[in-house]
Design a protein around this nucleic acid. Structure first.
Length: 530
RNA sequence: GCGAGCGUAGCUCAGUCUGGUAGAGCGUCACCUUGCCAAGGUGAAUGUCGAGGGUUCGAAUCCCUUCGCUCGCUCCA
């Protein structure tokens, strides 16, 4: 109880609170489980990360468009996505064996303690069936009733699918292209754990990248390029099928993490096995980070086939298909046997999907035939590659990775522990701190404020004149500020013309100092933070 | 949801067993000092001891409830 904290996560949580990165939500009322607030520095850090993602995924590309959808949507969306069914099972707990079972399965599942008997027959004391819904529920309109129940979205992805046609028509994009969104999502987790890692309210950065089905690629390009090696496959080609697109996005995402200070070596790629894959997924790669509490997922890059758009097409009755004039033109020129082969493959995929979703055999065959006939008219439902990242767990990963303690000599040469957040300058909440060497010298203060004002329009800078200079450096180390600028008597020209108008530039990681001319400061710092 | 442990200042913790109404270190703020890596001096602010209820003349301390945190189960589309 009185032991000093050794768990790194506890040290990090203390630092985050002490310095204003992360607070517990509603703390003055005792807190609320699974909800976290970002303080001044955390808010800057998160803004930087989201801005970099948006820059990388949307603004610096010409094949991705943005979207910002509502949190509350038509409940039909969650029926189509499967969330209402899979989230809303009635569960029964056994007080004897501590097991939890779906109420509709207790006569099939064997009791964990007495496997000879089914759960419904064993002697364990059981609770009444309880609704177990992981989606937050609310009512639209002032009257609370079953008819106006709505849910807070448990993921941002579905809004992208629901608005797919609107975006397609207004953005002047053609498949392959993507729709990106950053936004809040809500899950009523049973056990929020591990600091902010699994929260009930969290933010996602998701891209749904729509591609041609392989049959269409083959019809248009003659063949589907196969992945040849590991690593980034380079610039996208017209003959890429889903496998290359999937590999491309895995590598693009790893690059992104490298650019914000999580190099490849800090991540682990985990390819889900066939047993783990969701039934509609063709492949899913999780990008994992080694948190102090275990190696956990930061992002999943899933090849989701045409499942999502197909579901919304079936449930909404609106077509989610696209018209592709290249396909139409190419199809006409294909020899009959190639047409038939591609038709057959597309037909089988569609029929398999429909059958799995419970569509009757005959109806499935009819619908799949219609779908396959669409190919000749240039019509198909796009497939999708989904890189989906959690912002808050990325923030936590950045802080955990940045956190370090090293030994630095103090004034008397004694070694002291120095706590440093080694953020990449791109994400650091404060880019540069500006100090007058002494605060009781008005010339130094005035000059320091002038340097602050020079930089402030371009980056987040922090001015500090309180305390000894060493203490001010250490304060900035602890919040991850990469550069400190000290205005001293050399700056004022007291040590000769050569040093006039230069400042001390102190580096957070090496603690080394160099002189830099004030007119060169801005371009130097911008080169480091961009 | 179940079981165990914990909750005292911004942070880390002492005080709880043996009821007598709150402390330390660090941090923060102000002033002085300070010529480049947590220096020194003086002063200050901050706790309904997680919350609610009970026992008692008196509760941080004992009891109950509740909320929160941690760990183990469970769950994890």
């Amino acid at each position: 109880m009185s032991e000093p904290k050794e768990n790194p996560l506890e040290k990090i949580a203390s630092l985050c609170k002490r310095r204003g990165f992360i607070f517990q939500s509603s703390e003055i009322y005792g807190g609320i489980n699974g909800f976290w607030d970002y303080g001044p520095l955390g808010a800057e850090l998160k803004r930087n990360v989201k801005e970099l993602w948006w820059q990388t995924m949307v603004l610096q590309r010409d094949d991705v468009a943005g979207l910002e959808a509502t949190i509350i949507m038509h409940p039909g969306i969650w029926r189509a996505s499967g969330h209402v069914d899979t989230f809303a099972d009635a569960m029964i707990d056994c007080k004897t064996c501590k097991g939890r079972f779906r109420a509709d399965q207790i006569s099939e599942i064997p009791c964990p303690q007495k496997p000879s008997k089914k759960v419904s027959e064993c002697a364990g004391e059981k609770t009444a069936p309880r609704a177990f819904n992981l989606m937050f529920k609310t009512c639209v309109g002032p009257v609370e009733s079953e008819e106006n129940v709505a849910y807070l979205r448990p993921e941002t992805a579905q809004a992208i699918f629901a608005q797919f046609k609107n975006v397609l028509e207004t953005s002047r994009q053609k498949v392959p292209f993507g729709i990106a969104q950053i936004g809040k999502a809500f899950r009523n987790e049973i056990t929020p754990r591990n600091y902010t890692f699994r929260s009930r309210e969290f933010e996602q950065m998701e891209l749904e990248f729509f591609i041609r089905p392989d049959e269409v690629v083959e019809a248009v390009s003659g063949s589907v390029a196969a992945p040849v090696s590991k690593g980034h496959p380079g610039r996208p080609g017209a003959d890429w099928g889903w496998q290359l697109w999937h590999q491309y996005w895995v590598e693009e995402r790893i690059r992104f993490y490298g650019n914000i200070g999580l190099p490849r070596a800090t991540l682990e790629e985990y390819w889900q096995s066939d047993q783990e894959l969701a039934h509609y997924a063709r492949a899913t790669v999780d990008l994992l980070f080694k948190f102090p509490f275990g190696t956990q997922e930061l992002e999943g890059i899933a090849a989701r086939s045409d499942f999502d758009l197909s579901q919304h097409q079936r449930f909404s009755g609106k077509t989610m298909g696209v018209f592709d004039d290249e396909l139409k033109a190419a199809w006409e020129k294909l020899p009959k046997e190639r047409q038939d082969a591609l038709w057959r493959r597309y037909y089988e995929h569609r029929k398999k999907y429909l059958a799995r979703m419970g569509v009757a055999e005959e109806q499935a065959a009819r619908t799949a035939t219609d779908d396959a006939n669409g190919l000749a008219r240039g019509q198909y439902i796009p497939h999708v590659i989904e890189p989906s990242a959690g912002v808050d767990r990325l923030i936590l990963a950045l802080i955990c990775h940045a956190y370090s303690e090293d030994q630095a000599p103090d004034e008397k040469g004694k070694l002291e522990t120095r706590t440093v957040l080694r953020f990449h300058p791109r994400v650091a909440p404060i880019k540069a701190a500006v100090f007058p060497l002494l605060k009781n010298k008005p010339e130094l203060v005035a000059r320091a404020l002038a340097v602050r004002d020079l930089l402030r329009p371009h980056m987040n800078v922090f001015y500090d004149e309180a305390g000894a200079i060493g203490r001010r450096y250490r304060r900035q180390d602890e919040i991850g500020t990469p550069f400190c600028l000290t205005i001293d008597f050399e700056t004022l020209g007291e040590k000769g013309e050569a040093l006039k108008d230069t400042v001390t530039l102190r580096d957070r990681d090496t603690m080394s100092q160099e002189r830099i001319k004030i007119p060169e400061l801005l371009s130097f710092l911008l080169s480091k933070i961009h």
